[in-house]
């Protein structure tokens, strides 16, 4: 797993002496630094973007850092790498949720207490399916369908869509949530 401290990126790599992610130029500078670090990801790697040291984030910066980062990954091979967000608080969620919905994007957020959830533009069925996978640890479509009480074909389609959006990993047999809990 690669851990990227966004606060450190802001102050050191982007060389900006602030704790808050505001303004587009700041967001663009931080994103470019993060993109350079993500270039080193290997197939199937998980990158943890840690926002613990970030104060607030405005809409413009959320668009530059979060949305544009995810958009750049959207059309690449789904297994190439996964980005998971950590240290997200209410101070960040307002702007992040807004830009994710605007672009039809979603991401996995791991909270400090170990809980994880999807944030952004996902349907109720997608969210429920993702929660089942997360609870099961690693599971094939049939197991998830059984847990969800749904048709396997319907669940298989939902799992495939979540995998293509990099919200689930797939090893050829089973799906799992990008996991950083043990790090």
């Amino acid at each position: 797993m690669t851990r990227i401290d966004v606060g450190s990126v802001l102050r050191h790599s982007a060389n900006l002496p602030y704790a808050d992610l505001v303004t587009r130029p700041t967001g663009a500078a931080v994103r470019q630094c993060i993109e350079r670090e993500l270039e080193g990801l290997h197939r199937g790697d998980v990158a943890l973007l840690d926002f613990s040291q970030i104060g607030m984030m405005d809409y413009s910066c959320a668009d530059e850092v979060v949305a544009k980062l995810l958009l750049a990954y959207k059309h690449r091979d789904a297994d190439l790498g996964y980005v998971v967000f950590h240290g997200i608080t209410d101070a960040h969620l307002e702007a992040i949720e807004d830009v994710l919905h605007h672009h039809g994007l979603a991401l996995v957020v791991h909270f400090a207490d170990g809980a994880a959830r999807l944030v952004g533009a996902v349907s109720d069925d997608e969210r429920e399916t993702w929660e089942h996978v997360r609870a099961l640890g690693a599971a094939g479509a049939a197991d998830v369908a059984r847990a969800a009480g749904s048709e396997p074909e319907v669940i298989a389609e939902l799992l495939g869509a979540l995998h293509r959006r990099r919200l689930l990993r797939f090893d050829g047999e089973s799906y799992s949530a990008p996991n950083v809990a043990h790090h």
């Binding site: 808050d20 505001v22 303004t23 587009r24 607030m56 984030m57 405005d58 809409y59 413009s60 209410d90 101070a91 969620l93 307002e94 702007a95």
Partner: peptide
Amino acid sequence: EPRAMMGFSMALSESCQNIVE
């Protein structure tokens, strides 16, 4: 509450950015 205070700062930030941009 804290989330509303954050929203207040964001509204202020975005308003000021309109000038710069």
